[in-house]
Design a protein around this nucleic acid. Structure first.
Lengths: 159, 159
DNA sequence: CCGCATTAGTTGCAATTGCAACTATAATCC
DNA sequence: GGATTATAGTTGCAATTGCAACTAATGCGG
């Protein structure tokens, strides 16, 4: 027998979208502060570095897709990174609209220094959970992510 | 035997802070769009309404604490809401710096209309998970939230 | 009581973001 | 093959946000 559908009140502290937002915000701010202080990097820039470190030669659109950022955010992150000599950009010979992006040696150096910091933070956060809980959490997170994409904008409660 | 501490590379799509951020962002955008279209509300305004509906008479600082927003965000949200006739504000007799905030009848009406929408979205999101998984997820989320508060800004990987 | 530090809330300003318009190149379709 | 449409990426502008400075009221030490 399913639960009743339309309660009349809602407590913010039990509302999952709110709690997700607060947690993500706390975590991102902690990391953003560290990236900025130590490396002069924003989170978008860090994301660009992270994908280019593993897959050099991507275009800006590829980066946008893999980082869940929009193309404007990528464009500006890349601009900052090239200016700092951390990313190199050339145009694809076969399609002169497309950039070919890679980390420079300096960009790779930043990546090598930032990875341990990022992973250490993640490890200390997840240390709250047992290994089994960690992998459970990751699975649930992935399923919710897929679900949220399917759902799109909130529609009416046709209940 | 614990896992090795300092891998040299990191894949964004397995990095929990990134995944939390993407999920929270997807969910919040979906809700924000619905709130804006239907009620002309921003997310900060919705949060203010949600807490005042359950606990009328709070001050702006109280609201800030309960919504994890900073006082500037609360101030601006309240300004918009009072202008729309959805929140009333008086000064506390015992301390004339302090506001006493409550929903007006119109604010309560908005709340009653928005709650089913918000809960329906949450329900449809969580429908991805079994009831047992839902309660597990909520527990893990709560523990990570507490943990992230304890951690504060990311420090060095003294590993 | 009278200065001095504190707290509540607002405002101004600079940085960030998001969206639409724009430029340049490429692909498509008579 | 020339006009049309689509795609990659940038830029400009307006809205949002975050932080610090500010105003107003309170509390407190002497």
């Amino acid at each position: 027998m399913p639960a009743p559908a339309n309660p009349r009140s809602l407590s913010l502290e039990h509302f999952i979208p709110y709690r997700l937002s607060v947690l993500a915000n706390t975590v991102s701010s902690a990391l953003a502060g560290a990236y900025a202080r130590r490396f002069g990097l924003t989170i978008p820039q860090w994301r660009v570095i992270a994908v280019l470190a593993r897959v050099p030669g991507l275009s800006a659109a590829d980066v946008a897709e893999r980082t869940a950022m929009d193309k404007v955010a990528v464009s500006r992150a890349v601009m900052g990174l090239t200016r700092a000599g951390r990313v190199s950009r050339t145009l694809a010979a076969s399609d002169k609209r497309r950039s070919v992006l890679s980390l420079t040696a300096r960009g790779q150096a930043v990546y090598r220094r930032i990875v341990p910091l990022a992973l250490a933070y993640e490890r200390r956060l997840l240390a709250e959970l047992s290994p089994a809980e960690q992998s459970q959490f990751e699975k649930l997170l992935l399923r919710l992510q897929k679900r949220s994409w399917q759902l799109g904008p909130a529609r009416d409660a046709r209940v």
